[in-house]
């Protein structure tokens, strides 16, 4: 870790690079040679023309991770009801009974794919398989809580669990974005959406709990805010949505009276996803449409 560059120097550099791109990048070659920034790499990339038609017969596609149950399954159901094409991923499709039942109902519009989001080689393989498919909404839904009993300060902090929680909740959405952004850029709606949580709001932390889960969501929010700025120039909209406490396996153990029905939670998130524009890219949206503070 010798040539560590501090954030602020990078900020300065990024500003310079932004100026270079604004002024056509004619000169200032030393700086350009010295720095490799995200924007620069992104700008070198060609987006293939994948849409055959944007007419009335255009069928938009959503790719949903963690689609075997809970919120992910309900996302698949509601997008299918809207007439969309759905690529639904799950770690173990064989065991995803409800999803398979849905595939029988919509054999032409639902494709089920095996995917563990922490398996980057598999993410790349899936992106290659769908290289020619515009993806209107890339929906990072897969997430884990890590178990509240594994993240109790000074009692039991299982740091291996923390690593796993970070890999699934914070790293995977970024990896999937990196693998699929071109397909998103080639689509009509151009949206990359991640299911976050109000538990990821540092501002709203009022009681100490779920150290790992919360921290992973704060990290995720940071990653997505960066991506929103980066992908804006490719007209890709990035958003974070929060389902609120929902009656799924994820919240097992909580009294039902505290939980919202899954169809309502998903309908709310869909409305928020629909409403996101390039002007509001990077927002962290509560299920009622309000903005959650970081």
């Amino acid at each position: 870790m010798s040539s560590l560059t501090n954030a602020v120097s990078a900020l300065w550099l990024a500003a310079v690079l932004a100026l270079i791109s604004v002024f056509g990048g004619a000169a200032v070659s030393p700086v350009r040679a010295a720095a490799h920034t995200g924007p620069q790499i992104l700008d070198q990339q060609e987006v293939p023309v994948l849409q055959e038609s944007l007419g009335e017969d255009y069928v938009p596609t959503v790719l949903i991770t963690g689609s075997n149950r809970g919120i992910g399954l309900e996302f698949a159901r509601q997008y299918l009801e809207r007439g969309w094409s759905v690529i639904a991923t799950a770690r173990r499709p064989d065991a995803a009974e409800a999803l398979n039942a849905l595939a029988e109902k919509y054999p032409d519009r639902l494709a089920i794919e095996q995917l563990d989001v922490t398996d980057h080689a598999r993410v790349d393989a899936l992106a290659a398989k769908y290289a020619d498919r515009p993806i209107d909404v890339l929906l990072n839904n897969a997430g884990i809580g890590g178990g509240s009993q594994n993240q109790v300060f000074a009692q039991k902090m299982d740091y291996a669990v923390f690593e796993e929680v970070l890999r699934v909740n914070a790293v995977a959405p970024l990896k999937i974005t990196e693998a699929f952004w071109k397909q998103v850029a080639a689509s009509r709606d151009k949206k990359i959406i991640t299911v976050s949580s109000s538990q990821g709001s540092i501002e709203r932390a009022t009681r100490p709990s779920l150290y790992f889960y919360r921290s992973s969501k704060a990290a995720l929010n940071m990653v997505m805010r960066n991506l929103a700025e980066l992908l804006k120039r490719r007209e890709i909209i990035v958003g974070l949505v929060n389902p609120g406490p929902t009656d799924t396996d994820f919240m097992a153990g909580l009294p039902k009276s505290m939980l919202r029905p899954t169809p309502d939670a998903v309908a709310d998130m869909l409305r928020n996803i629909d409403g996101l524009t390039l002007e509001t890219t990077g927002s962290f949206l509560q299920y009622d449409g309000s903005i959650i503070p970081w």
Binding site: A7, A14, I202, A218, A219, M222, N226
Partner: peptide
């Protein structure tokens, strides 16, 4: 400005912790 994904998110993570 988009950059330093790892560094920045590690600092957001520690802030939350």
């Amino acid at each position: 400005m988009p950059m330093l994904y790892w560094y920045r998110s590690s600092k957001s993570a520690v802030n939350m912790l």
